Amino acid sequence: ADYWIALQEGHLTYGTFEDYKSIINRHIKPSMKGLRMRDVLPDDITRMMKEVANFSKSVHDKTYMLAKQMFTNAYDNKLISENPCPKMHAGGRDPVERQALTNEQMTTLIEAVKGTRAYVFCMIGLYSGLRREEILGLKWDCVRLTGTPSILVKRACRFVHNRPVVEERLKTKASRRVIPIPPQLVQCLQEAKASSKSCYVIGNEDNTPYTETQFRSMWDYVRNRTVGNKSYYRYRNGKKELYSFEAKLGEQAQNNPKVKYTIDFKVTPHILRHTYITNLLLSGADVKTVQYLAGHERASITLDIYTHLVYNKPEELMEKVQRAFPSSE
């Protein structure tokens, strides 16, 4: 297993490689401990998959996919005479359906972070659908604000032990794309560029991208304005003590009167992208267009996640059925 994953390192992004290595170390190697590859039976694979049945569907499916790839590689190299991996096992917990932000929530979020470092990040996510790593790797040379305003996605910034690594190797080949941007985002980027001292749209004055710590600090502008239970540490008599309180809608922060709790819904960096794609589909954009703008490798990925948006109105389906089978009268 260690030998096989080491061979994949040059073909995978750092994040994917670390994710796969974690799956192997946590779910495959412990289950197969004490067995030689040639002694593994289909029942051993079944047992391994039962052990991850209650994990997320993502973990479940990756476990099987990686095991199958390892055993297929061993079979192709004549290390084993038979591949013990049968047909894909069903299982894993379905992910909780993500809720895209409504128009009102989008407005609330933007108003809450306007004037902070999180503002431009949120605007790019909501109005272009870039992934987090694509936003953090975005440079001004890929932003066109005249003619047909657009963003060229060709770089991604990933974190390795907190340090940023920017590379032109994207998540998939489909991730490289040119995204037309609406007036709201054009205005935001024009203002940001006028005051920017960095080659990165979101970066430091020394032309370096954000570290992971800096990104988390930036996202705190969103968290700090969100209602709910909050905790903080305070030193008292030389001891570190934990304090908790409930932030209520409309109240001002106790330690910062300039901050008001106005966000009463869940916001994550990925929800910004999810909202962008949802709004495209609700506006009537066809699946192939959305696939391209989202940077999905296959249209099936778009459909698997957003089918309920594409086919959620019976009257629209009836119109299509009637066009396919017109009345003979």
Rank of each mutant, 00 (worst) to 15 (best):
Q8P: 00
E9M: 01
H11C: 02
L12Q: 03
T13V: 02
G15V: 09
F17S: 03
D19V: 00
Y20Q: 03
K21A: 12
K29Y: 02
S31I: 03
M32T: 00
G34I: 00
D39A: 08
V40M: 09
L41Q: 14
D44R: 04
R47D: 11
R47S: 09
M48Q: 08
M49D: 05
K50E: 13
E51M: 14
V52R: 07
F55H: 15
S58A: 12
S58Y: 09
V59A: 10
V59K: 12
H60K: 08
T63K: 11
Y64G: 08
Y64S: 09
L66V: 07
A67C: 15
K68F: 05
Q69K: 15
T72Q: 15
T72V: 02
N73E: 11
A74P: 08
Y75Q: 10
Y75R: 13
Y75S: 02
N77P: 06
N77V: 00
L79H: 06
I80L: 07
C85N: 14
C85H: 14
P86R: 14
K87E: 14
M88R: 15
M88E: 13
H89K: 10
A90D: 12
A90G: 13
R93F: 04
P95Q: 03
E97K: 10
E97D: 09
R98N: 14
Q99A: 13
Q99G: 04
L101S: 03
T102L: 08
E104P: 01
Q105R: 03
Q105M: 02
Q105T: 05
M106Q: 14
T107E: 09
T107Y: 01
T108I: 08
T108D: 05
T108A: 06
I110T: 11
V113T: 04
G115A: 10
T116S: 06
R117C: 06
R117G: 11
A118P: 11
Y119A: 06
Y119C: 07
C122D: 13
I124P: 05
Y127P: 09
L130Y: 10
L130P: 09
I135E: 08
I135F: 02
L136M: 11
L136E: 04
G137C: 01
G137V: 01
G137I: 00
L138N: 04
